[in-house]
């Protein structure tokens, strides 16, 4: 049985429906963007009309960093809940009794997180751009926000950073036995790639299209490797029983002959499947 987009989509649809009705997720999705919207707006509006190009560029760069924190942080919290949460609810075992493959489950869950997180990141970016064009007192702000490398980085990094957070979060979730521990670890693990973005934002590296593409490729490779690792970590048996899988040796190992049944002496006889001893 091959990979099925239909099964993956069924998981994705379920995830989105659950998010819509989860006060915790709705709350997180509502509060986090507000936090990450207010700070960049304050930075931009504090830039006076006489501030020079270098200072404007530095301020706008820190704005980009803040805009990328939201799509990196939000998925970590949700992804960390994804597997251990199902386990706690008792819904994981029924899922695993269907023909669903682990790759379909993981990708369905990942898409369920990446769609709202990246969508939210892009909306924040659009709101900042719009506010800058309407209300910024320094015209350099608009041109700094419209720089090609910055826009390209925002478009590329938001899904890739979200991807990192999601795979790390799901990986932790597949191994954790407690939702809170998974979410704390997931949030912490989502931060390292932001350090790279910070280096660009603070002009340690000069932003350029090439640099944005190189970092994007590195993040993409990291995301693919993480997906493979998380797939390997997703052990059905461990998730259901809490113990690791003990595989049968190749060829099936010692085989009990059909009809060979241990019985107490008085009961005796064999079983031919039709109720005839």
């Amino acid at each position: 049985m091959k990979f099925s987009v239909g099964r993956m989509t069924a998981v994705l649809r379920k995830e989105l429906r659950e998010y819509r009705r989860s006060p915790f997720i709705i709350g997180t999705m509502a509060v986090l963007p507000l936090v990450f919207l207010v700070e960049p707006l304050v930075i931009i509006f504090r830039i006076g009309p006489t501030v020079g190009a270098v200072a404007v560029d530095r301020a706008v760069s820190s704005t980009f960093l803040l805009l990328l924190v939201a799509p990196a942080l939000l998925p970590a919290v949700i992804a960390a809940y994804s597997v251990v949460g199902e386990r706690e609810q008792g819904t994981l075992e029924p899922l695993l009794t269907t023909p669903l493959r682990r790759e379909e489950l993981l990708l369905g869950k990942a898409l369920g997180v990446v769609v709202p997180a990246v969508g939210m990141g892009y909306i924040l970016f659009a709101v900042i751009q719009l506010c800058a064009r309407l209300f910024a007192t320094n015209p350099l702000v608009v041109s700094a926000l419209g720089q090609g490398p910055h826009i390209l980085a925002e478009i590329l990094f938001a899904p890739l950073l979200a991807g990192w957070s999601i795979w790390v979060g799901i990986g932790i979730s597949a191994r954790a036995s407690d939702v809170r521990v998974a979410q704390q670890l997931g949030t912490l693990s989502s931060l390292p790639p932001l350090a790279v973005v910070a280096l660009v934002s603070f002009n340690v590296f000069t932003p350029s299209v090439t640099l944005a593409v190189v970092f994007a490729v590195i993040l993409l490779v990291a995301d693919i490797v993480l997906f493979r690792i998380v797939s390997a970590l997703f052990d059905r048996e461990r998730l259901i029983t809490g113990a690791g899988a003990q595989r049968a040796p190749a060829g099936g190992g010692a085989v009990t002959a059909p009809g060979q049944v241990r019985r107490i002496p008085r009961v005796g006889g064999s079983d031919d499947g039709r109720g005839n001893p």
Binding site: R247, A248, T256
Partner: peptide, 10 residues
């Protein structure tokens, strides 16, 4: 139900 791999048998 194929949720657990048997250690031996068929």
């Amino acid at each position: 139900g194929t949720l657990i791999a048997p250690t031996s048998g068929s």
